[in-house]
């Protein structure tokens, strides 16, 4: 047992070092002076340490951070909730043709976004949402539904149908059963769906830039992209900016990590 424990720790620590290696490269180069970023010194610690990269990046990113937050929170929540409801229906309340609908929903997940930019812009103009954050939120919600539905459906498949049946025997309606029985059990699935949606929407570039042309309303990824120029690039600012832009997402991970709790199914049924 002791050897097993030792192996476990060894594997975890080696994995940790490998995972941190690229992040190490980003951090040490983020703290360099612009002129001293070079491939030859990419592994070395910065000397002298310069905060110019981080301050410059923060100056350029912070105005757009707020836009991103305003956009990402409703988008991620809405698409997760819709996905949970859809997944509930697809796994526990199947009806004739529901598999086909699920297939149609899922297939859309693979649509290459470059190909639909043009009709998307025209449609948003038509419903008067082009150039607004609301239009962007709508876009993210719609393109998020298929994956969140998939996540919840396949998570709910593992939850015994007897729980749902028991609740409906008790006289609870479909929505009430979802609210009272399924929702408390879905926390790990919500963690996964929210992590997925939050990250994807936060890091989306293509929709942000196409749907919202005014830089005042644009999400942070566009500002991040604009840290590099068309010809030469200050890599210290770009590396620093990438770390700064990832921090909100990382905070979300830390918060959601607590939801990965092992389900106590029997307890939930009584509730």
């Amino acid at each position: 047992m002791k050897i097993q424990r030792l192996c476990l720790w060894l594997i975890l620590w080696v994995a940790l070092i490998v995972y941190l290696m690229p992040i190490y490269v980003m951090i040490v180069n983020g703290f360099r002076e612009a002129s001293s970023v070079s491939l030859d010194t990419m592994w070395q610690l910065p000397n002298p340490i310069s905060f110019q990269g981080f301050t410059e990046a923060w100056k350029m990113l912070s105005p757009n951070m707020q836009n991103s937050l305003v956009m990402v929170i409703p988008s991620a929540l809405l698409s997760s909730v819709i996905g949970a409801l859809n997944g509930y229906v697809f796994s526990k309340w199947r009806f004739r043709g529901s598999e086909l609908l699920f297939a149609l929903l899922l297939f859309g997940f693979f649509i290459p976004y470059q190909a639909i930019l043009l009709p998307l812009v025209r449609f948003l103009q038509w419903i008067n949402l082009y150039g607004t954050l609301a239009g962007l939120i709508l876009t993210h919600v719609v393109y998020g539904i298929s994956v969140t539905t998939l996540i919840f459906r396949n998570f709910y498949v593992n939850i015994p149908s007897s729980i749902v049946e028991a609740a409906s025997v008790d006289g609870a309606g479909m929505i009430e059963t979802f609210y009272r029985v399924m929702l408390p059990l879905s926390l790990p699935a919500f963690a996964v769906a929210l992590i997925f949606q939050f990250t994807n929407i936060w890091n989306d570039f293509l929709f942000g830039i196409t749907v919202v042309p005014n830089p005042q309303f644009q999400p942070v990824t566009i500002a991040l992209n604009n840290l590099s120029g068309s010809f030469s690039v200050d890599w210290n600012i770009v590396m620093a900016g990438a770390i700064l832009a990832a921090l909100p997402t990382a905070l979300v991970y830390i918060g959601l990590g607590k939801l990965f709790v092992r389900g106590l199914v029997s307890g939930a049924v009584k509730a």
């Binding site: 994995a15 995972y19 980003m26 992590i195 991040l224 990438a242 990832a246 997402t249 990382a250 991970y253």
Partner: peptide, 8 residues
Amino acid sequence: FLFPYALS
């Protein structure tokens, strides 16, 4: 292990 996923 999850952090890389957050990066652009």
